[in-house]
């Protein structure tokens, strides 16, 4: 039983010149509070620009984001004090909206290196190759992808499915999925959802699913749905909240946050 606690998280980014501000920082997250327990699936929904991705990247430790206040506790340990790779080894995983292409580094080498780092020992060669091929096949990627450079020349859908293959192979305590559903056709969406459900069905893993659309919630059943507006949670409910958002949109929450 593991717990991921986000407490009063405030995050800023350096403002670019066209933002005009000479103070140089723009606050994106304005006090996020959220607790996820293993076995739970939380969906965070919100309009563009509400700070959903900032939340995902801040948890993972992207250097662009500056945490000005708050804590992110994984079983009591403040992961904000850890480096990006230490957070991953502690059990966090971020499936990115735009997975990065790394030329010349093969998927096979990348996965083996990551697995070795996470487990603290190299995986057994014979079973590992089988495991990798099986994970790729489950997300309908040809095993030949293992010999290609990481994400290089992959289609948008292939990149997302590759993220899910990594999720299954690295099997973290908590997975943050940042708009993994965006840009996917319905077949790819089902493949990705199946992967998340397999991961979640282990029973002792937590999922934070960040999405702009309710579509993926037809395939992944959330235990909690949160509305995210203007850098913090505006509402929390169950599955029915997603249905309500589908019917009436975010307007009500955006207006309330603007007051």
């Amino acid at each position: 039983m593991a717990t991921l606690e986000i407490k009063n998280l405030h995050v800023s980014v350096a403002a670019s010149d066209d933002d005009g501000g000479s103070d140089g920082a723009k606050e994106i997250l304005r006090g996020v509070n959220l607790t996820i327990k293993s076995g739970e699936v939380h969906a965070i929904m919100g309009p563009n620009g509400s700070g959903k991705s900032t939340l995902a990247y801040s948890i993972a430790g992207h250097p662009k984001y500056d945490v000005t206040d708050g804590e992110v506790l994984l079983d009591g340990q403040n992961v904000l004090e850890l480096s990006v790779d230490e957070r991953a080894r502690a059990g966090l995983f971020l499936a990115m909206q735009y997975p990065v292409e790394v030329p010349g580094v093969s998927v096979a080498n990348f996965l083996r290196t990551a697995k070795t780092a996470i487990d603290g020992e190299a995986p057994k060669l014979r079973t590992w190759i089988k495991d990798v091929n099986a994970a790729l096949e489950r997300v309908t990627l040809d095993p030949a992808f293992a010999q290609r450079s990481v994400n290089e020349g992959f289609s948008g859908g292939e990149k997302k499915r590759h993220e899910i293959a990594q999720l299954e192979l690295l099997n973290p305590k908590f997975a943050v999925l940042d708009e993994t559903d965006s840009g996917l056709d319905i077949d790819a969406l089902k493949v990705v959802s199946d992967g998340v459900n397999r991961y979640s069905a282990q029973g002792d893993r937590g999922v934070l699913l960040i999405t702009h659309y309710t579509r993926i919630l037809r395939y992944i059943q959330p235990d909690f749905v949160h509305v995210f507006v203007a850098g913090r949670l505006a509402e929390t409910g169950g599955r029915e909240l997603a249905d309500e958002l589908e019917a009436s949109g975010y307007d009500k929450y955006v207006k309330a946050a603007a007051v």
């Binding site: 991953a88 990065v100 990348f110 780092a117």
Partner: peptide, 26 residues
């Protein structure tokens, strides 16, 4: 590149080597 590799648990110095080797292995 470094962020992506590190986010999968790969320590920074190893991530750096992977990126440079990848750069030339290409």
């Amino acid at each position: 590149h470094l962020f992506y590799l590190q986010s999968r648990g790969i320590p920074e110095d190893e991530a750096r080597r992977l990126v440079v080797h990848g750069f030339f292995n290409d």
